[in-house]
Simulated scan of single mutants.
Amino acid sequence: MKETLPNVDSPEWVNAIKFNDDGLVPAIAQDATTGDILMMAWMNPEALTLTAQEGVAIYWSRSRGKLWRKGESSGHQQRVAEIRFDCDADVILLKVEQQGGIACHTGRRSCFYRKLVDGEWVTVDPVIKDPDAIYGKPEGES
């Protein structure tokens, strides 16, 4: 298991959250104005604490095993307007102002761009900006 314990002292309010066995809690980012669901990511106590302190979304990257400041590569930062948690205290809801209008690494507004239609997944939201233009092409590609 990767280290997910906080590197900073968490405030008392963080203790109300029920983190899973890996020390993580799912966090849903919702557009504060439209109510659109933009993405889901994970937070550990440190990410949640820093998000509240800094007012920008900071998540725990399971693939990288470290904190991930949303927008650090893309510039598509999420300014946090409100933090809530659900009735079971095991899901975080971030109401955010999405900078640049793109939350998904595919270049779309939302990560939820596929819809089940007649038993098939159909892409219903367009790419706003080519991911290569956002992140650059992977090494070795021209």
Rank of each mutant, 00 (worst) to 15 (best):
M1P: 07
M1Q: 10
K2Y: 03
E3D: 10
T4I: 07
T4S: 15
L5E: 15
V8D: 02
S10I: 14
W13N: 00
N15Q: 13
A16W: 02
I17Q: 06
N20D: 15
N20Y: 03
D22Q: 15
G23P: 09
L24G: 10
P26C: 12
I28T: 11
A32F: 12
A32T: 07
A32P: 08
T33M: 14
T34I: 13
G35K: 13
D36F: 12
D36C: 04
M39C: 12
A41K: 02
M43L: 10
N44G: 13
P45G: 14
E46N: 08
L48K: 05
I58H: 00
S63R: 03
S63H: 02
R64A: 11
G65N: 14
K66P: 00
L67D: 01
S73M: 09
H76S: 10
Q77N: 01
R79V: 14
V80F: 04
A81S: 10
I83C: 08
A89T: 00
V91M: 09
I92H: 09
H105I: 03
T106E: 04
R108H: 02
S110M: 07
C111T: 05
Y113F: 14
R114A: 04
R114D: 10
K115A: 15
V117D: 14
D118M: 00
D118N: 15
G119M: 02
V124C: 05
V124E: 11
V124W: 04
D125A: 08
K129E: 15
D132K: 08
D132E: 12
D132T: 05
A133S: 14
I134E: 09
G140V: 02
G140N: 05
